[in-house]
Design a protein around this nucleic acid. Structure first.
Lengths: 231, 231
DNA sequence: ATGTAATCATGCAGAGGATGCAAGATTTTA
DNA sequence: TAAAATCTTGCATCCTCTGCATGATTACAT
């Protein structure tokens, strides 16, 4: 897969205005991650984030609808892209495989976005590990994922030709898949980025497809221990 | 299973103070459900809810930490109970079965709590169906479920003797299971309570255990169509 | 190059969510 | 019945988030 058709990896915009917008967007996100990592979400105000990024507090809300969105939120139209990809990815293949491919790409795109912020990604992840226990943070991430889950559910419904109103299957499948991805990302962040996220997600989806075997489902597959997930 | 050891179904407290507290708690919850159902979450303030329940706005926050908690929040110690039950339920059985039993009971307890509010539960569910599309509401429910998912993950880790820091499996299993239950509850609420929630959850877990078959996993099992889920 | 249109940053005002504190009312207990 | 514990309430306060107007910046067409 080349960079041209890799979703989430966007080429630098030619326009000056677009470049500036992307710059302040990353400044704000970086500021938010930095401050939350060292103080915790509750002790960081939007005013703090804006001041660190050298913009007015009002401008912050021109870029993110909420404080939490600066931490977790991706592109505004991310949901629509996911829905369409889930609906059309690899027609003929099992739905679970299609979702796995799309979500795996999406997770990698997220990691790439983090990498684009400039500093050492592992550095943030290590510091965020402290704040990770905050229930409010967990709730915020879950809320963000709810949007994605809805998009995936709609995409699945379209793919399977099902009516979400009368058929619970698309919703159930989407919930399981997105939940698994989120758990993998949480584990990945908790490990400080020392595990291969894509590989972990693949293993988790294999476990899903195999019926969630009793324990050690994420260890076997290739070798003996769970080291096959670590780099 | 008798009422004595059925969690979530608590006997009426003897104390006058406890009875009053439970009464206003239900009054507040009912008021919140009523108002949100007819106006939408964005057009209902805490002041409105408090006024409808005939208490001061400040008192509302003595019962619920947030507006959304009045809609979805259960007992404050619900998470701890779930964690312990998941850890100890049916030792020897597969973890997925244990989670299914615990979550099924929990869902039924939630439905029972709704029934205890006094009016017709199907009535609220029918009206809530309109508000169900609100992204903010979905996010709030996901945030609530994040707490439960964490509790289930901890219970699973204890049950399987796994370390959540180095083993992603408990988190992944909990995310899939809780996500599936939430999807079932959403579908159940969307149907206006016209489907058997416990049966739907059982079917969904069977699909999980069978590896999420390609479509129609929630139809087969017993008969031909998906009618076996409807009452 | 210059004027015009589109877009963006900012300040201001304001509604609403949420918490801490203290005083008064109610229930429990001795 | 008095004291202790607990609950309700009002008040002050901080924070999140939105709408609106204004000036600044960028884009575009002539």
């Amino acid at each position: 897969m080349t960079a041209a058709n890799t979703p989430g990896v966007m080429d630098p915009p030619a326009s000056l205005r677009e470049r500036k917008k992307l710059a302040t967007r990353r400044l704000l996100r970086r500021a938010a991650l930095d401050l939350v990592a060292e103080r915790g979400l509750a002790n960081v105000t939007v005013e703090d984030i804006a001041a660190t990024a050298d913009v007015s507090p009002r401008t912050f809300f021109n870029y993110f609808p909420s404080k939490e969105a600066a931490l977790f939120g991706g592109d505004p139209d991310r949901a629509a892209v996911l829905r369409d990809r889930v609906a059309r990815q690899a027609p003929g293949e099992p739905a679970l495989d299609a979702v796995r491919e799309v979500m795996s790409d999406d997770a990698e795109a997220m990691a790439a976005e983090l990498r684009a912020l400039g500093g050492d990604p592992a550095d943030w992840l290590r510091r965020l590990k402290v704040a990770r226990a905050d229930p409010h943070l967990r709730a915020a991430q879950a809320a963000q994922m709810a949007m994605i889950e809805r998009a995936v559910a709609e995409g699945l419904a379209a793919r399977l030709g099902a009516d979400p109103e009368t058929d619970p299957y698309p919703g159930v499948l989407a919930a399981a898949a997105v939940g698994v991805v989120r758990a993998c990302m949480t584990f990945w962040a908790g490990s400080g980025g020392t595990v291969a996220l894509g590989q972990l997600i693949d293993l988790a989806f294999r476990a899903l497809g195999d019926g969630l075997p009793e324990h050690s489902a994420l260890r076997t597959s290739t070798g003996t221990g769970r080291k096959d997930v670590h780099r």
